[in-house]
Amino acid sequence: MAKIEFAKKVEVATLSDLTVGIGYRLNVAGEEIALFKLNDGSVRAIENCSPFKKGPLSEGIVSGEFVFCPMRDWKISLTDGQVQAPDHGSVKTYSVEVEGETIYVHLD
């Protein structure tokens, strides 16, 4: 893939904005992103779009490192974006940095 990539680190929210188990909807420069705060306090960011019907993953039921797509109940990893068997597919993931209270997401 011969395309130039420059990562962009964007401040998107603070830890207190997020509730464990409930997705947080973001639109960063036109990209729909869903943020999740896990039980261990760590934060994940994925493209807010189920690979099936383009449903918003931010609305899914969260279980540990996974979210269940609200449209078709597909189980999707918040860590690597992979759809779990028996379904297939993947969603884009974004690397996240938490500095103190502040959450940053890397766009590329």
Partner: peptide, 19 residues
């Protein structure tokens, strides 16, 4: 426990396929 409810019952509306 709202986090254990399907989105329809958290948003108190029926989600459509386009969100």
């Amino acid at each position: 426990d709202p986090t254990s409810r399907f989105i329809n019952e958290r948003a108190h509306a029926n989600i459509n396929h386009d969100g």
